[in-house]
Simulated scan of single mutants.
Amino acid sequence: MPKRPLDHPAHAASARISSPLAPPSPDVPTPLLGNLTPAQFMRRYWQKKPLLIRQAIPNVAAPLSRDELFELADQDDVEARLITHFRNKWQLEHGPFAADELPALKQRAWTLLVQGVDLHDDRARALLERFRFVPDARLDDLMISYATDGGGVGPHFDSYDVFLLQVHGKRRWRISAQRDLSLRPGVPLKVLQNFEPEDEWVLEPGDMLYLPPHIAHDGVAEGECMTCSIGFRAPSSNELTAQFLYHLAERGENAAGGEHEGHAPQLYRDPQQPAVAHPAELPA
């Protein structure tokens, strides 16, 4: 799913969060990364290849209960989306959603996405703190996805790094490093037209999947489930140019390749980014 722009009000809100906890040590192995150190993870996997981690957080609990998530989705200052796939037709609606505006729990194949949960709940913020071995400048937010049986958002790719942590129920993930990123026409979501999965796993509570940008993936709930997505922005060259390199913009130089049929946009890349001890410091 597309992430919010860098100048979205929620990013300003994140600056008002109370002082963050100390970041994880770059050189201490952690179950969160399959007993790799953050430094090893960044060298071997960050922006390079996917990593499946069984029991990254044993005995994990969802930051919010289902009812708490539904209450959050009903607030005016919260970004929420409802995605349904009824009768083989994709539909997308934007919140807020009152409880009686959501489909019935027994209805299959619907998903509620709530962005920026870390801005509204200390438990979600505490979970996010576990991932501060990546510079804060790259951090976007923690999103929670609630889905009924068969729910998902279709096969798609993202333009950011993401850790997909299963916190309730089961979700089947299929992924592919395919180059064909063309999209189905006439669909309100960015659903891939020719998805060809290469790997497949069922994630249970505590399991986590890391995906770098542009790895095609499709997650489908097996029964009721909740997934936390910890996203790290990979801004396009256009975004960086518009916000930081105004002299290039004034000269009319566009360093980014735009998204077009079957091809991914050119993104800021940092495959050699080491784990950091001071995440608030801007990378060189």
Rank of each mutant, 00 (worst) to 15 (best):
S159T: 14
P155T: 05
L240E: 00
G219L: 09
L203W: 06
A221I: 06
F163R: 06
E224N: 03
G150D: 09
A221F: 10
R174C: 14
D199C: 12
D207C: 10
V153D: 02
A221H: 09
R172N: 13
E222D: 13
D161K: 04
Q193L: 15
D149P: 04
E222Q: 15
S236D: 02
G150P: 01
S182G: 15
M226K: 04
T148Y: 06
Q243R: 15
E239R: 00
V202Y: 02
F157E: 01
M208T: 03
W173H: 13
L211I: 08
P235H: 03
L203T: 14
D199F: 14
L189H: 10
L203K: 04
S237D: 00
E224F: 12
L211F: 12
R171W: 12
W201C: 14
A177P: 08
H217K: 07
G151V: 08
G154S: 09
R171G: 05
E196M: 13
S236P: 02
L164K: 04
M226I: 08
D149R: 03
D180I: 02
L209H: 11
L181C: 11
A234L: 01
F244N: 02
G206F: 03
Q193W: 01
V220T: 14
L164W: 05
C225F: 00
Y160P: 02
F232H: 05
V162G: 07
P197G: 01
P205I: 14
E239M: 00
A242I: 01
F195V: 11
Y246N: 07
G186P: 15
E204Q: 14
I230N: 07
D149I: 10
E204N: 14
A221L: 07
T241R: 15
E198I: 07
C225V: 04
P197R: 00
E198R: 12
N194V: 04
V187H: 06
R171C: 08
R179K: 15
N194E: 13
P205R: 12
I144K: 02
Q166T: 08
D199R: 13
L203I: 07
S236N: 01
S145V: 12
L164G: 03
G169T: 08
